[in-house]
Simulated scan of single mutants.
Amino acid sequence: MENLAKRTKRRDILRTTKLIWRFKWLYLMLVPVMAFYIIFKYVPMYGITIAFKDYNVFKGVLASPWCGFEVFEKIFKSKNFWLSIRNTLSLNILSLLVNFPLTIIVALMLNEIRHVQFKKITQSILYLPHFLSWVVVAGIATNLFSQQGGTVNNLLNGLGISSIPFLSHGGWWIFTYVISNLWKEIGWGTIIYLAALTGVDESLYEASYLDGATKFQRLIYITLPCIKPVIVMMLILSVSKMMTIGLDAPLLLGNKKVMSVSEVISTYVYRIGIENAKYSDSTAIGLFQSLVNIVLLLIANKTAKAIGEEGII
């Protein structure tokens, strides 16, 4: 039996070697990708140890003394830390509630367009904002929503309505952020749903049409059930990023007047890590953020499986 196991193992190794050699050029194309992730993703992970050290920039990571969980205890006692978590979750939940259903609706609307040229032009217009830098988007938002001289307030003033402080009042700032993010990303988010819609069996539509189903009924009973796995997958991925917001949007749109709602984890880490050089604190916050995102991902995936969906893990 032992000799048989050895022969089977050698045969498997030989078969694998032949397959690798057969597709050697494809594997060779993977080398730059693997090198990128190893050099820029895995090697820097040793820097996580800074969160457990009294880091000194002159001593370096290796020579800095260990301090256990003292850094975490310190940041957990900070009111600004919990404020940034609250704001991050609030903005992400509001963006999810607005962006997620509207993205699906826009994808369904685009799928109903039958004029090919018009559909391509519409898609290109919707995709374009995604490729704009947040610096540009923030500049556009400022010109539109500024209380003094902003286009929207000028129109409101022309109608006899007083100016609205979109960028200097907490509630209105959240509205401005959500709308700006929606305008920038809604078109790009439709790509996956449009790809899923191309996989819906046309014979189902034909059979339902012969049975007298309306367009709305075909949408409810055929289209949405067919793309439900994709919707669930995108929802799980969105939930897994609840603790993450890019630095540029809140930093560029925010100001001191709305700090109570615009200070998110990324801007908080920027201020204490870059501006105040508290590298251990910023690393600990980043590690905590990643761990919470992983937990949210696992919970969302388990919930999806519990209701009969496949999940992503």
Rank of each mutant, 00 (worst) to 15 (best):
K74V: 09
Q147Y: 15
C67R: 15
H169K: 07
I113G: 03
F175Q: 12
Y193R: 02
S180L: 06
N99H: 13
A63W: 02
V178A: 12
H115E: 09
I140D: 03
Q147G: 10
Y127G: 03
S84I: 03
W173V: 03
L91Q: 00
F76K: 03
K184V: 06
I85Q: 03
G187R: 06
A63V: 09
Y177L: 07
S146P: 09
W183Q: 06
W188Q: 15
I85W: 15
S64R: 01
G150P: 09
I179R: 10
S78K: 07
V106G: 04
T151F: 15
F131E: 05
L102Q: 04
G171K: 02
T190Q: 07
L156G: 15
P65K: 02
V98C: 05
K77Y: 13
G158A: 12
N154Y: 11
I121H: 09
A138N: 09
Y177S: 04
S64I: 01
G60P: 04
S180T: 08
L108M: 14
L126Q: 08
S124N: 13
F145E: 10
F81W: 08
H130S: 05
L110M: 14
Q148L: 11
S90D: 07
L144Q: 15
L62K: 09
S90Y: 08
W188P: 14
I93R: 05
A107M: 07
F131R: 04
A138P: 03
V57C: 02
S78D: 15
